[in-house]
């Protein structure tokens, strides 16, 4: 199965403010896109738009599977994982409860849950309440759903930033395994990823583009 994500000439707005315009992107199975740009330029908004949380102000996002275009499918419901800054962990619940919920809700199996826990070395954290976790540990818990429920498109928003060196290396391995298995990854980063990626640099629109919007 080959999958391709085509973004044509999209413009994004936040409120009335034009964030970016004329963004084009074609990513096919195995592609990793590193999304860069200054703070506030619209990286998170772009990723959320790809996931389908917010419609673009202009332009289109299409998903093509084995040369047939998928119309009207929700990318986030079926094809992608979106990991943002918020880890969606309730401070009053234990790590194992939250992981079990993410797994059951998104359609994972008990086996995939156990494998994800082992792969991300979460075993020692399972019976802690999530409010006890450090930022890096919280991020690792939220990363588990990438492995529990296999989906081809990963939309990741600076997921490596809070991790320590050993877990960054582990996560890079996991990302490469995902890509070599035919996945697509769009990752907002400030530090470059240590493997081959295509760069997509977002810049503020020119005054003329703001005037036209």
């Amino acid at each position: 199965m080959t999958l391709s994500l085509n973004v044509q000439d999209i413009a994004l707005k936040k409120g009335h403010k034009l964030l970016v315009s004329n963004v084009n992107l074609t990513a096919t199975s195995g592609d990793a896109i590193s999304l860069t740009g200054a703070n506030g330029v619209g990286k998170t908004t772009f990723l959320r738009c790809l996931a389908g949380f917010t419609p673009p102000h202009r332009g289109s996002i299409q998903l093509v599977e084995n040369d047939s275009q998928l119309d009207g499918v929700s990318i986030i419901e079926n094809y992608s994982h979106y990991l943002g800054h918020a880890e969606a962990l309730n401070p009053a619940r234990r790590v194992d409860q939250e992981l079990q919920f993410h797994c059951d809700y998104l359609g994972g199996t008990d086996l995939s849950l156990r494998e994800a826990i082992a792969r991300l070395r979460l075993g020692a954290l399972l019976d802690l309440e999530t409010r006890m976790l450090s930022a890096g540990q919280r991020k690792r818990v939220s990363l588990a759903r990438l492995l529990m429920v296999p989906r081809p498109i990963w939309l990741l928003d600076e997921v490596l930033s809070p991790l320590d060196i050993a877990h960054r290396a582990l996560m890079v391995d996991i990302m490469q395994a995902h890509l070599s298995g035919g996945g697509i990854m769009v990752c907002a980063v400030h530090d470059p990823l240590p493997f081959d990626t295509r760069a997509l640099h977002l810049t503020r629109p020119s005054l003329e583009e703001i005037g036209n919007a």
Binding site: F53, I76, Y82, E87, A88, N90, H102, Y105, L106, G107
Partner: peptide, 16 residues
């Protein structure tokens, strides 16, 4: 409110 602040809705909308 709590789930909205925690970002849980990003996961909830990722389900069916």
């Amino acid at each position: 409110e709590r789930d909205y602040e925690d970002g849980l809705f990003d996961i909830l909308r990722g389900g069916k």
